[in-house]
Amino acid sequence: MIPEELIKRIRQIQIYTSRAVDASFAGQYESVFKGRGMQFDEVREYMPGDEIRTIDWNVTARTGRPFIKRFVEEREMTVLFAVDLSASGEFGTVSKLKNELAAEFCAVLAFAAAKNNDKVGLLIFTDRVELFIPPKKGSRHILRLIRELLGFTMPKRRTNIPLALDYIARVVRKRATVFLVSDFIETDFKKPLSLLNKRHDVIAVPVRDRVEIAMPAVGLIEVQDAETGQIMLVDTSSKRFRAQYGDHSSRRFSELKNTLRSINVDLIPIATDKPYINDLIQFFHMRHRRH
């Protein structure tokens, strides 16, 4: 039995994301995420102007007349959301938690994929693989993915990104577009991500809260690391502390961007204090220009 509150949240996200997809980027999604190859369509008789290299020599030899192979772009693609729902995602100081933002972001793209008749799958991970739903088509399947994302509960766990990447490499055989959604607290993932990106099109989605970017001056506060349980007392009224905090945050994010750039992995940074639709549209424009 699904709790009524969860049903309400799923319905709200369904309404919001459906409108966002229709109004903002359904066409852009289709133009950017094209099929990843060509598939055989038919053999037909050669006509003047056809490419000689497309001639099917076997059929030509059997019939005594030149025939060519015709190929069409393979439109159907596979989308996989690999979502980090470890304890550090249960944080947010604006309108939603990071994990809620991650779920909503995935829902928007999942509905766009469904409108494009693509297969969509889901991997939820922490420091272990919590749930894997193989890629399938259909709106009911999409709603199940959203329900699993929103309703996921677990003991406080840490993050293991390499484990999730290795799992994807083992179970997803057909080339896919993989959205890796995480706050990227862990940093030791460059090698497995680089290997996975050679077989699939991996896009990193860093999820952040504004307090993780810049600490406000709110006096003496107690902060706790959600994944380790470590507690610290900090004086946020100190300009020196806030400056060091901001520098550290900026440096870590720059390191993440540099790591991703070095292995040709694109990123879509999203934050709990601003709409992510603009970030998605900007990403689509960037991909479209590159293609």
Rank of each mutant, 00 (worst) to 15 (best):
M77A: 12
V83S: 08
I10W: 02
I10Q: 05
M38I: 02
D84H: 09
V79Q: 08
S24M: 11
R70Q: 10
A82V: 12
R70A: 01
V59S: 13
S31Q: 07
G64L: 04
G49L: 09
V59R: 15
I2Y: 06
E30M: 01
E45I: 12
E5F: 13
P3Q: 03
A23H: 05
E30R: 03
Y46V: 03
I55T: 05
E4W: 04
F71I: 02
E51Q: 12
Q39H: 04
I13P: 04
E76H: 10
W57E: 14
I7C: 02
L80A: 10
R65S: 13
Y29W: 15
G35W: 03
R36S: 12
V21P: 02
K8G: 00
E45Q: 15
E74I: 03
V83F: 06
F67A: 10
R36V: 07
I2W: 05
S31Y: 01
D84C: 11
Q39Y: 03
F25A: 01
Y29K: 00
D84I: 07
R44Q: 08
L80D: 05
I68Q: 06
P48F: 14
A26S: 14
W57R: 07
M77N: 13
I10T: 04
M77S: 15
S24F: 15
D56T: 07
E51P: 02
R62N: 04
E51V: 00
A26V: 04
Y46P: 00
I68D: 04
G27Q: 13
F71K: 02
E4Y: 08
D84G: 09
D56H: 06
S31L: 10
I68C: 06
I15C: 01
V32C: 12
F25T: 00
V83C: 13
A61M: 07
S24R: 02
L6G: 00
Q28F: 12
P48I: 11
I13Q: 06
I55W: 07
Q14K: 11
V83D: 09
Y16Q: 14
Y16T: 10
R65N: 14
R11H: 10
Y46S: 08
I55H: 07
D22I: 07
V43T: 14
A23R: 13
L6Y: 04
E4P: 02
V72W: 02
A82Q: 04
V32W: 08
G27Y: 11
Y16C: 01
K34A: 09
I55D: 08
D56E: 11
N58G: 02
T17R: 06
R70D: 01
Y16S: 13
E74N: 14
R44P: 00
R53I: 01
Q14V: 05
I52P: 05
T60Q: 12
V59Q: 12
F71Q: 04
E73L: 12
A82E: 04
M47H: 09
T60G: 14
E42A: 14
P3I: 06
Y16F: 12
T63G: 02
N58I: 03
I55F: 08
Y16W: 11
D50F: 13
S18D: 15
K69W: 04
I10R: 05
R62Q: 11
D41P: 00
P66R: 10
A82W: 03
Y29I: 01
P48A: 15
R70G: 00
T54F: 08
I10D: 02
